[in-house]
Design a protein around this nucleic acid. Structure first.
Lengths: 197, 197
DNA sequence: TGTACATCAGTGAACGCGCGTTCACTGATGTAC
DNA sequence: TGTACATCAGTGAACGCGCGTTCACTGATGTAC
């Protein structure tokens, strides 16, 4: 394991930093929560000694923050790409919801780190980034209704979060198909006319 | 600590079982997740030696299952009490939502165990109980709308879950007041006429 | 009434484990003179 | 061109910790005769 890795050339020690973030990122997918991810496992995955992690990160929290920032930017990009250029607000919201759910499904470990961990006052570095994504939602909702826009937007996000986490954690519940869930979620919170009537 | 406890009288050894469940139940509130709760901590809290837990529970999972069952029945009772006798379906849903959110807020640790942990195929003992609570929701939703009842009900539950977990884990987000969130959630998914128009 | 025995509610001591973190060290590479 | 020195990218070895779990044991209480 460790013997396979050869040390970085002089002047490029910072490469290990990226390797460590990448290792932690990969391991997060194999694990149920941030707490289960150990510094020693990250070091093993990267092929270095446990202490070497401390060459680049002061402690575990610092490493996790680096992963967190990386993944949040990633998700934001996905959501931006999915919604950009869609003129119809409901179409935009459906695209957002679909991309959000797909991301959560494809990266359950990362999603858990992004939204499933307890945020503390001293550790919510991506608050502003999150608000940026929230703005996409609110603008679209505001185009569809006049009353309770803030609440409806928060419900939309909470609904998305609830759907992806409960589907993941309570798989034995008789879930309706995801497509129907998302379209009902969007239609209801944008007060779209009922498809039935 | 341990010296303060005196052993149960002969024939009443089963009392320790309840004390252990109670201890685990109490400790779950002080902890971020089920994994953080240790058998040794439970034993300490109950005032007995670590091994004594094994007199009543085969392993950690068995202990957690006991707490889980206890708390699920508790929540079900709360939800039943809150909604019983309310004739108007939207009123019933609002009462359900309020009781649900209040329970989650007052017992964050228990709520996390009930809905925040990964359920595995071999460990979802309360599936049926959960469906019972879900039925309260679906019946009320069905009284309000004809289309997409199953999806709307699932969205309602997911929305509730998302609201209580995100409010807890992302407190720095600019949340609208809870009352408005819940009434928007219920109104939208029951397709109530807009309060605005 | 006395005593051997069984049962019961636990405990003493230990196991091996992986963890986060620290301290002193190494050995290759570049640089100044 | 040679060599002393500084820098850099790491490692060796160890620390103390709490964990889940197991095994053999204890000491009080009841029961049979």
């Amino acid at each position: 394991m460790a013997s396979e890795r050869e040390r970085n050339p002089r002047g490029h020690g910072a490469r290990l930093r990226d390797e460590l973030v990448e290792a932690a990122d990969a391991l997060l997918e194999t694990v149920r929560g941030e707490e289960e991810l150990s510094m020693r496992a990250v070091a093993r995955q990267a092929g270095v000694a446990p202490q070497s992690v401390y060459l680049h990160f002061a402690d575990k929290r610092a490493l996790m923050t680096a992963v967190y920032a990386l993944r949040f930017r990633d998700l934001l990009e996905v959501l931006g790409d999915a919604t950009r250029g869609l003129a119809d607000p409901r179409e935009r919201l459906l695209a957002f919801a679909g991309a959000y759910a797909q991301y959560a499904e494809q990266h359950p470990g990362h999603y858990r780190v992004l939204f499933g961990t307890a945020g503390t006052t001293d550790w919510e570095p991506t608050q502003m980034v999150g608000l940026e994504a929230f703005t996409i939602l609110r603008d679209a909702v505001a185009e569809c209704r006049d009353d309770a826009v803030e609440s409806a937007t928060a419900c939309l996000w909470a609904g998305l979060h609830g759907i992806v986490t409960l589907r993941r954690d309570r798989p034995s519940f008789p879930w309706p198909p995801l497509d129907g869930l998302l379209s009902t979620l969007v239609a209801d919170h944008t007060r779209a006319p009922s498809a039935h009537a």
